[in-house]
Amino acid sequence: MFSVAVMTCGVFLIVLESTLLVKIPGWFGRPDLVFILVMWLALRFENSRELLLAVLLGLLLDATSGVNNGIYPAAYLVTFIVTRVAVANLNIDRRTHHIPVLVVAYLLFFSTVWLMSSLSGHTELIPWRQAVPEIMALAIISYPITHLFDRCLTPFDDKELLQRILHGRRRSNRYL
């Protein structure tokens, strides 16, 4: 159920990005909402299921964006694994340092896409300064969006809570 909810949310975000957010001028910075979702999965959970979801989101993005297939799944995979490993081994609090981690992870994601594009024969690569407005937009919007994910998607991970929401059942112990 959680996976279906995340994928539905991913489709919604891609639609939003490709129809509404593209109207924002490039210099203003267009936040990558799917990246925020991927990072939310990486930082809020500890299972391997989220890694699969991140790759699936990359595949979904691949279908609507880009010229060479496989760039987004691979970039999400690399960013996801590195972020998880870094967070597990460094003194980083997943909630407190969410935005700084997201910003650093975006730089890694940007570098990965840049590297893969250059390897796939791109002659004109986008300049690094392009990353600045995107990172700014990402940092600003990530807090409310992450909060929204916490509110809307986390219940799908809690089977008991979900059942209560769907069927209106109460716990037997009313003090819980």
């Binding site: 891609i14 990005e17 490709s18 957010l21 993005l61 964006s65 880009g66 010229v67 986008i126 392009q130």
Partner: peptide
């Protein structure tokens, strides 16, 4: 109906 979401490609 849709444009490329990234700044990398123009599709």
């Amino acid at each position: 109906i849709g444009r490329d979401t990234s700044s990398w490609f123009r599709t």
